[in-house]
């Protein structure tokens, strides 16, 4: 896994609005290569075609929520670090997600213009920790 560049992001969110906005913000403004999925199932299906550097997952989704999606992707061999979106953040949740090996949790509503920079920061911090 590389700590040098964050280029490819897999976004999973069940809400079309969020997918368009985040897709635009990360793609057009952030300059990332973004793959957008509407559900955990879709993300699992696309895992073979698109190998991301980072997973950006909505926590509350029907059928497979963010945590289930992350576990599913990990089980299929994808080791890319993850960041969660949530509108129901509670302080005690942050600890739980840290234990899952999640880089961070971004509360909704967020500023799409700053999202790319936020993800890069999280990515860098992780890179620094991982370096010997």
């Amino acid at each position: 896994m590389t700590a040098s560049a964050l280029a490819r992001i897999l976004l999973v969110d069940d809400q079309r609005d969020i997918r368009s906005i985040v897709g635009l913000a990360l793609g057009k403004i952030g300059g990332f290569k973004v793959k957008v999925c509407a559900s955990g199932e879709e993300a699992l299906a696309s895992a073979k075609d698109f190998v991301p550097d980072l997973l950006l997952l909505d926590l509350s989704m029907p059928v497979m929520d963010g945590v289930a999606t992350l576990k599913g992707l990990r089980a299929s061999g994808l080791q890319a670090p993850a960041v969660f979106f949530t509108a129901r953040m509670k302080p005690e949740d942050a600890v739980r997600y840290e234990e899952l090996g999640v880089l961070g949790v971004i509360p909704k509503p967020f500023d799409p213009l700053k999202l790319g920079a936020q993800l890069r920061d999280m990515w860098k911090k992780r890179g620094a920790e991982k370096k010997p």
Binding site: Q15, D17, I18, I21, V22, L24, A25, K28, I29, S60, A87, R88, K108, P109, F110, D111, P112, L113
Partner: peptide, 23 residues
């Protein structure tokens, strides 16, 4: 309620932010 209120706000603010940024 928190979720239901924040979710549409996220979309509104996001869209406006992108418009303002000239996307």
């Amino acid at each position: 309620a928190s979720h239901e209120l924040r979710t549409p706000l996220t979309s509104m603010r996001g869209s406006l932010g992108l418009l303002e940024a000239g996307v």
